[in-house]
Design a protein around this nucleic acid. Structure first.
Length: 506
RNA sequence: CGGGGCGUAGCGCAGCCUGGUAGCGCACCUGGUUCGGGACCAGGGAGUCGGAGGUUCAAAUCCUCUCGCCCCGACCA
């Protein structure tokens, strides 16, 4: 009783040391861990199940909008990457390069690379160039368009500084690549996919996002326009959770993607690309997790509910387990958003308190305790992970309303995250106010501070650069659904079309 | 890749300054008593002290190098 390690399951708390808290949540929830390979993580079953649920939901949305999955090579010839000048510049610094084809034992028995390749292969950091090459073979006529392809894959970017889920050297993602006859069609596609991401973030991840356009400075290398969804984490920093690019004819030119139009004229196509990654899991953690560990939004939860049997002796055990199994079957027959309710019965022989805390730390939305008293009264004792609320409910009523209860949690998580974001978003009218907003009180050990600043900006990248140099604050996006009232740039005094979002970012 | 911090049992840590051959809490295993929000008692297993050199009779401890992790910066999903 007195051996509680602390008041919270996670130490330190968010307020005490946010980055360390993040690491500890991942460990406590058994989501992932660092691997022997520098910068690469092992995604453990509970974390991978989240990714599988993300995949399943998004994949259905991609298919519903006419996309098809395909798979392209992991290796990209160096000459392909070189085709698009800005693209090269953007990715050259972080590429893993394969130069040899085998290993040979040297005099000491050590293996050394041998069989140098004629042309080095790049482990894909993204697939525009190799897919572009294939698209150039597949597209000949306007009748071949639009070409709508998606790939689920791993990619490698040799990052110097990594963080589990948020930035790892290898990560999992999906990359959509499409080809269109006109700019209008391609731009519509770009925004359609952005909307899908935003809808997914809010309605599945319960993570409110702002849809916006990147400034030239923050654009994808080689893109004409980059759109993004930006979310606010609990340390008030922004997380770019998804991107959608209108690539213009840049990659069409470099990969020679041309088609004959209805007039028989040969023209370059317009392409798009868009992606989300395992970073989304990091976003979910930093949006919903608390000082007791992970909190998973029900629509993506590996398990919606866990049944925890409570008994003292073997006689009670048999009775309780039988009751739990039938309850499990009833719940599994219920549906939540068209899918069976996922419910697990945890009958491991271990102290009940410790067992319960394991599920709290993993973030399972509903914990159902069933003991002799519940059986006697035909009820179940249910705890909500998001609010901590606990109450006894008649069994039949619980089974009948389980989907509604899960949806209530889903809705609460979104509402709570939105309220958090809104209270940490500030309209800023002057440079002084801006600098004060983004300057911590404690310089040595900065407290959580700042947030989203909505401020007028004249479009100058020199100002962007200055703010970044002074405060590590960047323009996260120019909101698409923002207030379009013109005003005055708070840095230059020049006219501004609309407010943009400034924040510190991951 | 630059600056700072840290690597001791699965996790969190003490020991290091002032060298003497490794400890605590949790977790794990066994037995018993317990059991409706992190149970208790007793016993037990587990660590080449990140790695490699060096100094020394003796190194977790001192010195050099190296690898990894975390934070800040630059860069990025």
């Amino acid at each position: 009783m007195s051996t509680k390690p602390s008041k919270t399951a996670i130490t330190p708390t968010r307020a005490e040391d946010y980055p360390e808290w993040y690491q500890q949540v991942i460990r406590a929830a058994d989501l992932a861990e660092n691997s022997p390979v520098r910068g690469c993580m092992v995604i453990k079953p509970w974390g991978y199940a989240l990714w599988e649920n993300i995949q399943q939901a998004l994949d259905a949305k991609f298919k519903a909008t006419g996309h098809q999955n395909a798979y392209f090579p992991l290796f990209i010839p160096k000459s392909f990457i070189e085709k698009e000048a800005q693209h090269v510049e953007g990715f050259a610094k972080e590429c893993a390069v394969v130069t040899h084809s085998r290993l040979e034992a040297d005099a000491d028995g050590k293996l050394v690379p041998a069989g140098e390749l004629e042309e080095p292969l790049i482990v894909r950091p993204t697939s525009e160039t190799i897919i572009g090459e294939m698209f150039s073979r597949w597209v000949q006529s306007y009748r071949d368009l639009p070409l709508l392809i998606n790939q689920w894959a791993n990619v490698v970017r040799w990052e110097l500084r990594t963080r589990l889920f948020l930035r790892t050297a290898e990560f999992l993602w999906q990359e959509g690549h499409t080809v269109h006859a006109t700019q209008k069609d391609a731009m519509e596609e770009t925004l359609r996919m952005l909307d899908i991401y935003a809808d997914f973030a809010e309605n599945y991840m319960a993570m409110p996002v702002i849809k916006g356009r990147k400034t030239a400075h923050e654009r994808f290398p080689g893109a004409e326009e980059t759109f993004c969804i930006e979310a606010m984490m609990q340390d008030h920093k922004a997380l770019q959770a998804g991107t959608s690019h209108y690539l213009g004819q840049n990659f069409a030119r470099s990969s020679n993607i041309r088609f004959q139009n209805e007039q028989g004229e040969l023209q370059y196509a317009h392409t798009t690309s868009w992606g989300v990654s395992t970073r989304l899991i990091g976003g979910m953690i930093m949006t919903h997790a608390d000082d007791d560990g992970m909190v998973v939004p029900p629509r993506l939860a590996p398990q919606h509910a866990v049944i925890l049997p409570i008994y003292r002796d073997d006689a009670a055990r048999a009775e309780v387990l039988a009751y739990c199994k039938s309850l499990q079957a009833e719940l599994a027959a219920a549906t939540f958003h068209g899918l069976p309710v996922r419910v697990t019965l945890d009958d491991r022989d271990m102290p009940g308190g410790a067992k319960g805390w394991q599920w709290i730390k993993r973030g399972v939305p509903l914990r159902i305790e069933v003991g002799p008293r519940d059986i006697a009264s035909g009820s179940v004792f249910v705890a909500r992970r998001d609010t901590g609320e606990k109450k006894s409910q008649p069994r039949g009523e619980f089974v009948a309303t389980v989907a509604a209860q899960l949806q209530a949690i889903q809705d609460n998580l979104l509402a709570r995250a939105r309220a958090f974001r809104d209270t940490n978003t500030r309209v800023i009218e002057s440079k002084d106010e801006f600098y004060a907003y983004f300057t911590p009180k404690n310089k040595e050990k900065p407290e959580i501070h700042g947030g989203f600043a909505l401020a007028h900006w004249n479009g100058s990248s020199a100002i962007e650069e200055q703010v970044r140099a002074d405060l590590s604050v960047t323009i996260r996006c120019i909101p698409l659904d923002g207030d379009l009232t013109p005003g005055t740039c708070i840095f230059s005094g020049e006219p501004s079309h609309q407010r943009v979002i400034f924040a510190k970012a991951y």
